[in-house]
């Protein structure tokens, strides 16, 4: 009986660890997307990125096609 109990607990631990590791993986991806959205919103009207010129690069700020995208406050680019 004791052996069955041990076996039951062990299998429960295995399944629980698989379940939680998968859940953590999923929530990790969701957290990253959420964080990116929060960062984009926080950037608001003063984003640290700039889209310059006329070209074919998709600018994520205004959905225009531009020549290049850069961060103006980074001196070494």
């Amino acid at each position: 009986m004791k052996r069955y109990l041990k076996f039951g607990i062990f299998s429960l631990v295995v399944f629980a660890s698989v379940f939680f590791s998968r859940k953590a993986e999923r929530s990790n991806v969701q957290n990253v997307i959420l964080l990116n959205n929060v960062e984009a919103l926080a950037a608001g009207e003063n984003p640290t990125t700039r889209c310059i010129g006329t070209g074919s690069v998709d600018c994520s700020l205004n959905h225009e096609k531009v020549k290049y995208v850069f961060e103006p406050f980074i001196l070494e680019w």
Binding site: A40, T49, V69
Partner: peptide
Amino acid sequence: KVSDGYGIP
């Protein structure tokens, strides 16, 4: 590189 959640070429 990633900036404001965007990919900057």
